[in-house]
């Protein structure tokens, strides 16, 4: 059971996020076959129905495609993956801004802080 789930979000949504990350990070490339529902369920320790639900949602969003006999494949192209990546990074940036604003920083201060942090690296 390698994945940790957080408490307050339905698990299938968390699986969707994780699958998206795997696609963007290149673990699953365009055209790659995804693991079978039951195998993935076993690997991460969740109910097969939950994985099924997550896959169905990914299909609906057009990220994966299922072929009747041979399983599920990543179906988006490079352009799609790029869009997905920018979607996810937007989310992270939005989250970062939201957190830093809570500290009382305005947007200019945040930008300066990012630059400062980069220089230090």
């Amino acid at each position: 059971m390698t994945w940790k789930f957080t408490d307050d979000i339905p698990i299938y949504l968390q699986i969707i996020e994780m699958m998206k990350m795997d696609i963007v990070s290149g673990k699953y490339k365009s055209g790659d076959k995804l693991p079978a529902v039951r195998d993935l369920a076993m690997e991460v320790g969740v109910n097969p129905n939950t994985v099924q639900k997550a896959f169905a949602e990914l299909e609906r969003q057009g990220l994966v495609q299922s072929e009747r006999t041979s399983g599920r494949f990543v179906s988006i192209d490079e352009k799609g993956i790029e869009e997905l990546r920018s979607d996810i990074s937007d989310n992270y940036i939005a989250e970062m801004f939201a957190n830093l604003r809570k500290l009382g920083m305005d947007d200019q201060m945040i930008r300066n802080a990012v630059k400062h942090w980069e220089d230090k690296q």
Partner: peptide, 15 residues
């Protein structure tokens, strides 16, 4: 349903 429960309460089943 556990997902519905999490959705509607914003909590884990345990919580």
């Amino acid at each position: 349903n556990v997902d519905e429960l999490r959705d509607s309460t914003g909590k884990s089943v345990d919580e």
